[in-house]
Design a binder for these strands. Structure first.
Length: 959
RNA sequence: GCCGGGAUGGUGGAAUGGUAGACACCAGAGACUUAAAAUCUCUUGCACAGUAACAUGGGCGUGUGGGUUCGAGUCCCACUCCCGGCACCA
């Protein structure tokens, strides 16, 4: 057989496939359908990247397998072509962005086709096509009509270089995601989308989809649902004693700590602060407050939130709040660690039980009051709580007793039960924790002279008291004693029978103590107990003392007239961009109508029949100096008759962010040429939802959330059949440059697939990218390793020299193991081990030979990975139809079974001998053989146990 | 600081609690060749004992320290470092 000429053969089949439209999905999906989706690429000027190849190949393989399993498969491709890089390039070169886009998409298309992906090219879409963005605008109008799109003057992130407003999600480390310049705050009229109205559903519906767990977690964290309480604090003013109506609402997730709230903190831009400043004389330190608020406002969020940042703040002098629980008059501060847009923009500070409040209180010397006592429940034996049984309550002590001269402490090793504890005991009538501790010490150990050092407060322990056979809740004072000398009395024999006295160092105690409460005491003693932020048992809280957090929360909120509420971290989506290369927002501002209906502020939606609002063809795209869109200078375009009153009006000149077009593109693939609707409903019902969507982790919070939001909205309009767009979402790892650095244009280390394909072929590139490592993890490119894959494919090509008509029975087992492994691995995206399984098969076949049918079966499972070489070899074997139309082979149980297995013989878990035995040999026989084989080693040994695992091992435990 | 993910030979990596290092790369030795490339065969975790050389033998070894288990890369606890994301989120 001649050498495999990858360039010639790959191009040959690509041309044939294109001509036969082999990958074209049927217009209407049949009963078994599979919609495979990859994130459509942004056609950048630098062309396709090897990273694109990785994710595209993965979904290509899955699509191929589904076709072979009899599914109607839709695997579409298109271009997410609006965006800043193209616009910036156009500004620099003077070439129209539409033209740049055309060039780039042409390059991408050519490159993708040269890799042999099984895309349905007949459905290619482009977000910059007016026929496409007509529907992007149409969806926006529907949102406007439902009150989800609104214009609002508010502080936004402003990039002074790009001259656009950025969504919060687009700000990276306080800098513009695209240009890297520091983002400022600026007031601007912006179109907003009320994604927060969908927060609850976006959060809850994650339960019903098959996203990778880490993706769900990231979405949940971004949405940030938290349940808590809103509580009102009355406010009084020193300088206006008669003003009674002031009050401040705070949001807290820990209303159980209300009695420990010793001051309030407001965001520096809280409305209350602004109003207080307008009332002259209300504050005693107006200037300081004003200065701090101003500084905080101009400070980028990154500095407010920087790691290890020292807490800052200013007191609102002359203003007091009343803690509604204990009526205490407490001071009010402003500090930049509190954000105006989360919760109510105000917090009650509980410095004893919150890390940040604690730091702040220490810096400003504010009272710290403990109101939660640590509480532990034993969840493991011995002492695991018996569910449903009542608790007996006991006032108690835990006593740490230090040695008179050494740094050692008394530990009690219990004899009836595997406990290690400090000295414990109850507090009897008339005893204080101190006297109780001393009495226990004398009684249990006999030491007479101990000095009381400190009572560290109470720790609650819920456990099952094994000797006493009851659930116990012990409320124990942590008492620290130091022995003055070794003077000792003899101890009751009964006590002695209970436990053994040990002298232990702190390190030894950490291993020795079995109860969480005692471990906690040890931590406190070592000074690293920190502040206690968990739920626990209340103290210093009036009638709520001894109540546990969960119960106390509700009761306290009730008592002070607060309400339980749910808040989200998610914020509304800033939808305006002052740029040229985006979808024009289809709104018209009419002064006349505006006067008639102040509620709309004069905004009139463009009538649907007038869509799309096309971008005007102009020569300059630079944003204007005042930050307005370039469209604002195009008088001819923006002057328009008001659709309602027919007077002259102006178009909205802002455009949409590039996330708009990608929020619904997967719907358009289903019916890409539809002129009457975004897609036909029947077709949507047949094809959607997307069965499997693979993309990058970097799109988990922006694109994924936005598109789920739009889809839910369309579902509410009954335009799409399901409330979630994607059944399954997975993610791929990045490909790094050789050496592990991130590939980027600026570093000049980005790899283009073109030269690679020329040198080793598309099949090699595809298989290498699947073989290089776990699909979900980032991995560095390694040209050396690719050579191994090239060799692998060449060896497969040479199998044609050894293939024989007759089946080689000897390789059936290997073949079917391979079928099984490859099929399973594809489903789990474990492509690297799938490739390695095929390598193992080829190694085997080279030794043993292979029959034509067997080779054909192997080629079938390799075909999704390497579609060209397999198609060629398939046709050389005499097949007329494409290999890609063949059914997926099934692993035959008959061939998977093995008659003999290797049994290990191990001694104390260390492998010593091995032998072969028939599959499913019974345990007795295995043990007998093992005893014989290892007889030398077992001679004179005390075998205390033998473990036999069928088909695996025999382990002798000797002493 | 918080949230995710990770750490295994010279390298990429493999391994339902059961022979750690599959499969590759690199390296070394050999075959073929006038020669080289290509290809093929063999060796290849570390250190040691052993042998003329093989054979062989036990020891160590999956970031660190503990634990559970007959048996741990895998499970549990604590920690270190690296990567990604982020919101000081009350």
């Amino acid at each position: 057989m001649s050498k495999y000429d990858h360039n010639k053969i790959e191009k040959k089949w690509q041309a044939k496939w294109e001509k036969s439209k082999i990958w074209q999905a049927p217009k209407v999906a049949g009963k078994k359908k599979f919609y495979a989706l990859i994130e459509f690429p942004y056609p950048s000027g630098s062309g396709l990247h090897v990273g694109h190849v990785r994710s595209n190949t993965a979904m290509d393989i899955i699509s191929h397998k589904r076709r072979a399993e009899g599914y109607d498969v839709l695997y579409p491709i298109g271009w997410d072509a609006f965006g800043l890089p193209t616009e910036n390039y156009a500004i620099k070169t003077g070439i129209h962005p539409a033209k740049v886009t055309k060039q780039n998409t042409d390059t991408f298309r050519k490159q993708l086709k040269r890799i042999g992906f099984s895309f349905d090219w007949s459905r290619e879409i482009n977000t910059t096509d007016p026929e496409y963005y007509k529907w992007t605008q149409w969806i926006f109008l529907q949102m406007y009509k439902k009150g989800l799109a609104y214009k609002s003057k508010m502080p936004i992130n402003w990039c002074p270089v790009d001259k656009i407003g950025l969504a919060n999600e687009e700000v990276v480390d306080g800098c513009c995601e695209r240009c890297g310049s520091v983002v400022e705050k600026r007031e601007k009229e912006q179109w907003m989308l009320a994604i927060t109205k969908y927060a609850e559903r976006l959060y809850n519906d994650l339960d019903g989809v098959e996203y990778l767990e880490k993706i769900k977690t990231q979405q949940r964290n971004w949405i940030g649902k938290s349940e808590g309480a809103e509580i009102n604090f009355a406010v009084t003013f020193d300088n206006q004693p008669k003003a009674q109506d002031g009050s401040l609402a705070v949001f807290t997730t820990r209303p159980d700590t209300l009695f420990g709230a010793t001051y309030l903190v407001l965001a520096p831009d809280h409305l209350f602060v602004t109003l207080s400043l307008t009332h002259k004389g209300l504050l005693n330190n107006e200037d300081a407050v004003r200065a701090y608020a101003k500084a905080a406002k101009n400070k980028p969020e990154i500095e407010r939130t920087a790691e290890g940042k020292e807490k800052t703040g200013v007191r609102l002098e002359g203003i007091w709040a009343i803690n509604p629980a204990n009526k205490e008059k407490i001071p009010v501060y402003i500090a930049d660690y509190v954000l105006a847009h989360y919760g109510t923009g105000a917090i009650m500070a509980v410095p004893a039980h919150d890390q940040r409040d604690n730091e702040f209180a220490k810096k400003f010397d504010l009272p710290i009051r403990q109101v939660i006592e640590p509480t532990y429940s034993q969840t493991t034996e011995p002492g695991k709580i018996r569910e449903g049984e009542p608790f007996d309550h006991r006032e108690a002590i835990i006593a740490v007793v230090k040695h008179w001269s050494e740094d050692k402490y008394i530990g009690l090793k219990w004899k009836q039960v595997a406990w290690g504890t400090f000295i414990t005991g109850g507090i009897e009538k008339g005893q204080t924790p101190e006297t109780a501790a001393k009495a226990e010490l004398l009684e249990e150990v006999g030491y007479k002279n101990a000095r009381f050092v400190k009572d560290y407060g109470i720790v609650h322990g819920k456990f099952y008291h094994v000797p006493k056979k009851t659930n116990r809740n012990s409320h124990a004072h942590m008492v620290y004693l130091e022995l003055e000398n070794d003077e000792r009395v003899s101890v009751d024999t009964k006590e002695e029978a209970m436990h053994e006295v040990m002298w232990l160092t702190k390190a030894e105690l950490a291993k020795f103590l079995t109860a969480d409460t005692h471990q906690y005491f040890l931590k406190v003693l070592s000074g690293n107990g920190g502040i206690y932020t968990d739920y626990g048992t209340l103290s210093n809280s009036s009638t709520y003392n001894r109540m546990e957090s969960a119960e106390a929360m509700k009761k306290i909120v009730d008592e002070v007239g607060g309400k339980m509420i749910t808040t989200f971290k998610l914020r509304d989506w800033v939808f305006s961009r002052q740029r040229y290369w985006g979808e024009p927002i289809p709104m018209i501002r009419c002064e006349y109508c505006g006067l008639k209906n102040p509620e709309t502020l004069g905004w009139i939606p463009v009538p649907e029949k007038d869509l799309p609002v096309k971008l005007p063809n102009v020569k300059k795209y630079e944003p204007t100096d005042d930050g307005e869109s370039p469209l604002s200078t195009m008088e001819k375009w923006l002057r328009v008759k008001c659709p309602q009153c027919k007077n002259w009006a102006r178009r909205e000149t802002d455009t949409m962010p590039n996330w708009a077009g990608s929020s619904w593109y997967f719907l358009r693939y289903v019916d890409p040429k539809n002129k009457k609707a975004l897609a036909d409903k029947t077709l949507l019902k047949k094809w959607t939802p997307v069965d499997w969507y693979n993309g990058g982790m970097e799109h988990t919070t922006l694109h994924l959330l936005y598109s789920r939001f739009w889809h839910k909205f369309l579902y509410d309009l009954k335009l799409v059949p399901t409330s979630e767009p994607y059944i399954k979402r997975t993610s791929h790892g990045l490909i790094l440059a050789e050496g592990g650095a991130k590939m980027s244009k600026s570093k000049g280390n980005a790899l283009s697939p073109d030269e690679i394909i020329k040198a080793v072929g598309a099949d090699t590139l595809r298989v290498y990218e699947m073989f290089m490592g776990p699909f979900g993890e980032s991995i560095a490119w390694n040209t050396n390793n690719m050579v191994g894959v090239k060799r692998f494919l060449d060896r497969i090509w040479r199998l044609q020299d050894i293939v024989q008509k007759k089946e080689v029975a000897d390789v059936n087992h290997a073949l079917h193991v391979c079928i099984q492994k490859v099929g399973g691995d594809i489903e789990e995206m474990k492509f690297n081990t799938a490739v390695s399984a095929m390598m193992v098969f080829v190694n085997e076949v080279e030794k043993k030979g292979v029959g034509e049918k067997q080779l054909a079966t192997f080629l079938r499972i390799l075909a999704p990975f390497a579609p060209h070489i397999t198609e060629e070899m398939w046709s050389v074997l005499g097949n007329k139809k494409s290999i890609h139309l063949e059914k997926w082979p099934k692993a035959d149980k008959k061939f998977l079974a093995v008659s003999e297995v290797t049994i290990m013989v191990s001694i104390n878990g260390k492998m010593r001998e091995q032998f072969r035995a028939a599959t499913d040999t019974d345990n007795e026989t295995l043990e007998k053989i093992a005893r014989t084989i290892a007889s030398d080693r077992l001679k004179d040994q005390n075998i205390i146990r033998v473990i036999v695992v069928p088909n695996k091992l025999v382990n002798f435990v000797i002493k």
